[in-house]
Amino acid sequence: MKYARSDTARDPMPEVSDEWTAELKKGSIQLCLLALLTKEAKYGFQMIKELRETTEGFFDLKEGTLYPALRRLEERGFVKSEWVERETGTPRKYYTLTAKGRKALDEARTVWTTMAHGVDRVLGRSR
């Protein structure tokens, strides 16, 4: 069986290294995952799909990246998980944001907004 590559940037941007884009993604993935859980509990496949659609394909996570990331968040106490049986089909594991996770999300959002605002201003100046 031939296997796909891990999550790295695969966009045709010859002047920008894959590593740089991959680092940007890695640094922001946990923030995005927490943000996806603000309103309701979600399961992994649902989160991958939602993330892909919302970011227009920029975040196209593979299962081998998503689930370890969610488990890291769970180890930190930012999310909790629960298996939910279904009437038909395989049971799903749902992830919920905890109070600690909500606080972490607020703090991270502040950092992100400040950074994005600052970078935007610099980029605006360079145009």
């Binding site: 992994g44 496949f45 593979k62 299962e63 081998g64 298996w83 395989t90 594991k93």
Partner: peptide, 27 residues
Amino acid sequence: VLRELKAHLADAVADGGESAVVANLEA
């Protein structure tokens, strides 16, 4: 981990078909 991966693959297959899922799997 296996239970979660199994649930994920079941959802992915239902959404896009097995051949598309298999082509996108990591080692």
